[in-house]
Computed example of a mutant assay.
Amino acid sequence: MTLLAHRAEGPPSAPPLLLGPSLGTSNALWDKVAPELSITHRVVRWDLPGHGSSAAGLIEAGATVGDLADLVLALADSLGIERFAYAGVSLGGAVGLHLAVHRPERLSSLAVICSSAHFNGAKPWQERAALVRREGLAGLAESADARWFTSGFTVPELVEDHRRADPEAYAACCDALAAFDLRDRLAEIAVPALLVAGRNDPATPPAHLREIADAVPGATLVELPGASHLAPAQCPEAVLTALRAHLGGPAGRGMEVRREVLGDAHVDRAQARQTPFTARFQDFISRYAWGEIWTDPTLSRRERSMITLTALVAHGHYDELAMHVRAARRGGLTPEEIGAVLLQSAVYCGVPAANSAFATAQRVLAEEDGTAG
């Protein structure tokens, strides 16, 4: 049996993660995301029929999203993968929704990125399929940037993939989108689900992802500012942050610990201030500081709070010190214990540093406990 072309990365023994592409692209859509995910997962990214390196004959006119889902399952079977996490963009996301409804036993989790439970009815896709069968893909490729990215941004390799796709296979994928509508089945989805929307996406705007999130029990919705339709290519760091938290790796565990130590209010404020520019740094903090260091059982959280307070005094980071005085109180340290830590710091870090630290701590303790410590 001819299989979908694919690219596998990561340890063969790691948890499997399948990545699906958008119409008109290849698995190169995931170039800035897959290598990072492959550190903790066995990543398999696949090409649509007639796209990238997949054979055009794998799909025929009148195809459905279910047909594409069957091809994905055949690929997984050939690789010995029984159950897997899945993430897909646009048409690739629709494949994930189909699997979650019709073959839930195969999925451990689902991430739907810049996609929808329906694609605005059959007519526009029937018209696009007819156009491509009649004129080929050159004209559509010329407008790919406007459909895929915000103004001034492009990924030439992906536009070239669009131009080189097989017209008949592309048209058959349009047939699949024309027939796709799972809105009345969304409530049946029981696997952990993440919905990622690009706030500037004209093809599947955030309202489409909100519709899924509202219907799927327990689903999480993330909206990415500055992202259009191909978010993994345009905002890879933000997509990575969302996927890592969803997949439950170090970033996911780290975010949980971060909330336990610092409190929901502080973390929510930090998340609200996150931008595509700062997303990678926030992911770094969640994965390494909170997901690996603070979760190490060698030291208790009380001990880590004491060490952290001392380090912040030593370097004069008094805004951070205020935050960690609050964290220390949440973790059970008394005002007397915090004072003892600062007094110890006076001996080894200097009296002026400890003097400023006592002033900061006294203010925080008064705010938190109504006492000067």
Results as ranks from 00 to 15, higher is better:
residue 126 Q to L: 15
residue 89 V to F: 06
residue 95 V to C: 08
residue 52 G to F: 07
residue 118 H to C: 05
residue 65 V to A: 05
residue 61 A to W: 11
residue 121 G to C: 09
residue 77 D to H: 13
residue 98 H to Q: 13
residue 121 G to E: 09
residue 69 A to E: 13
residue 57 G to A: 09
residue 85 A to V: 13
residue 85 A to L: 10
residue 130 A to R: 14
residue 83 R to F: 15
residue 71 L to S: 05
residue 74 A to G: 09
residue 55 A to Q: 06
residue 68 L to H: 02
residue 66 G to W: 05
residue 73 L to C: 15
residue 103 R to P: 02
residue 82 E to A: 11
residue 81 I to T: 12
residue 111 A to N: 06
residue 116 S to A: 14
residue 77 D to N: 08
residue 111 A to P: 02
residue 56 A to I: 11
residue 122 A to Q: 05
residue 92 G to A: 03
residue 58 L to Y: 04
residue 69 A to L: 08
residue 54 S to E: 11
residue 103 R to A: 03
residue 97 L to K: 01
residue 121 G to T: 15
residue 104 P to I: 12
residue 70 D to G: 15
residue 128 R to C: 06
residue 95 V to Q: 05
residue 102 H to G: 00
residue 131 L to A: 15
residue 77 D to K: 14
residue 129 A to T: 13
residue 122 A to E: 12
residue 105 E to A: 11
residue 131 L to N: 07
residue 99 L to F: 12
residue 78 S to K: 09
residue 88 G to W: 03
residue 72 V to R: 02
residue 60 E to S: 11
residue 87 A to C: 10
residue 88 G to V: 08
residue 69 A to Y: 04
residue 72 V to P: 07
residue 107 L to D: 01
residue 53 S to C: 09
residue 125 W to L: 03
residue 74 A to R: 09
residue 131 L to D: 13
residue 56 A to F: 06
residue 91 L to K: 07
residue 118 H to R: 06
residue 126 Q to D: 10
residue 65 V to E: 07
residue 91 L to A: 08
residue 124 P to H: 13
residue 122 A to S: 14
residue 66 G to E: 10
residue 73 L to P: 13
residue 91 L to R: 03
residue 102 H to K: 05
residue 103 R to I: 03
residue 123 K to L: 10
residue 58 L to Q: 04
residue 77 D to Q: 14
residue 130 A to Y: 10
residue 58 L to M: 09
residue 86 Y to M: 03
residue 63 A to Y: 01
residue 56 A to L: 14
residue 51 H to E: 11
residue 131 L to Y: 13
residue 110 L to E: 00
residue 129 A to R: 07
residue 119 F to I: 00
residue 108 S to H: 09
residue 72 V to A: 09
residue 96 G to R: 00
residue 116 S to M: 05
residue 120 N to Y: 14
residue 79 L to Y: 10
residue 54 S to N: 15
residue 112 V to R: 00
residue 76 A to G: 07
residue 86 Y to K: 03
residue 57 G to P: 10
residue 55 A to E: 10
residue 81 I to H: 10
residue 99 L to V: 12
residue 125 W to S: 02
residue 56 A to N: 05
residue 73 L to A: 12
residue 96 G to P: 02
residue 103 R to S: 10
residue 78 S to R: 06
residue 113 I to F: 03
residue 131 L to V: 15
residue 113 I to S: 01
residue 82 E to N: 04
residue 70 D to H: 08
residue 70 D to S: 13
residue 93 G to F: 00
residue 55 A to Y: 12
residue 89 V to S: 01
residue 69 A to I: 15
residue 114 C to Y: 02
residue 104 P to M: 11
residue 126 Q to Y: 06
residue 87 A to I: 05
residue 59 I to G: 02
